[in-house]
């Protein structure tokens, strides 16, 4: 059945593009989308997660656990960075850009000096499966599942848990939250840390499929920012539909005309969306609900 094969091939491409966009954006959706911190060092959190994951996995730890270690390491780095630098710049967004860019350069060049130009990777696990005439890497399906699981976890955390309510209250009206007895400094710190940990998890999840170099973060950062910009301020209601929309555009264009067309299509779609919806997709959804 050639038409089934073609359809399945397209759905796989769509799922793969969508998973990449969602995983790239999940951490940044919190740090930039929700908290409003333009974090140019986001790619370095991803790199940190990938490096820690691979180092731990090479020591014999199962990959799933290794990804968790990568996420925790990035999360810890994120909390530290928030305490030392970001905290002092919440009301100076332009200075944040310069500071996080500097941190990004220090982190990637520092890694180059300390750990050398490349790190041996671990092989992609789970092998491959043939469906119709084509063969697929099973690990890519695992990545799609991971993206869906992370979206679900974000929804539960920010829309259903007490921490989520406090975090949203703190970021929307910090003084009122403080007056009601919320430790806003702790909430800021933890929220930033969760964003960084998600970036680390993304790095860890993609580490077995990529070449590990100190500048690898740059390969995620464009997709991360465009997905968050298209998604808008809400972590779940932004990232999920933005991932689906952009994933659809990218999969369609790359299948039809190749990688270059895919990149162009993605960026044209982003320009179109922010022209029509300046507050992103979640801005539209939330306005209609209100």
């Amino acid at each position: 059945m050639p038409s089934f094969d073609a359809a399945f091939g397209f759905i796989y491409q769509f799922g793969d593009a969508c998973a990449f966009l969602v995983l790239c954006a999940s951490g940044l959706a919190i740090i930039f989308g929700m908290m409003g911190v333009i974090n140019l060092a986001h790619g370095e959190f991803i790199m940190c997660g990938a490096y820690v994951t691979v180092t731990v996995a090479k020591a014999g730890v199962p990959l799933g656990l290794a990804v968790l270690c990568g996420a925790l390491a990035s999360g810890a780095a994120g909390i530290l960075l928030e305490r030392l630098v970001i905290r002092h710049l919440y009301d100076r967004p332009l200075d944040t850009i310069v500071a996080t860019w500097g941190i990004s350069l220090i982190a990637s060049q520092g890694t180059l000096i300390v750990l050398g130009p490349s790190l041996t990777d671990v092989s992609t696990p789970l092998g491959s499966v043939a469906i119709g005439g084509l063969s697929y890497s099973v690990y890519r399906f695992a990545l799609m599942a991971a993206a869906a699981a992370i979206l679900l976890a974000l929804y539960v955390l920010f829309n259903r848990s007490r921490f989520g309510v406090l975090a949203r209250a703190t970021i929307q009206l910090p003084h009122m939250a403080e007056a009601l007895g919320v430790d806003t400094r702790l909430i800021y710190s933890l929220t930033f840390g969760i964003g960084a940990a998600l970036a680390g998890a993304t790095g860890g999840l993609y580490a077995p499929t990529m070449t590990l170099v100190p500048t690898m973060g740059a390969q995620f950062i464009m997709e991360a920012f465009v997905t968050v910009v298209v998604g808008g301020g809400d972590v779940f209601l932004g990232t999920a539909p933005a991932g689906v929309l952009l994933g659809l555009v990218k999969a369609f264009m790359t299948t039809w005309q190749g990688q270059l067309a895919g990149q162009i299509g993605l960026l044209v779609a982003v320009i179109g969306v922010i022209r029509v919806l300046p507050r992103g997709i979640s801005g539209l959804i939330l306005r209609e609900r209100a």
């Binding site: 005439g133 084509l134 890519r140 790359t254 190749g258 990688q259």
Partner: peptide, 20 residues
């Protein structure tokens, strides 16, 4: 024949096109 922009790191579609 496919030309790939420098910096692209995700190749699922390229791999599928080659398989086809």
């Amino acid at each position: 024949e496919e030309f790939i922009p420098l910096g692209v790191s995700q190749f699922s579609s390229t791999i599928q096109n080659i398989q086809k």
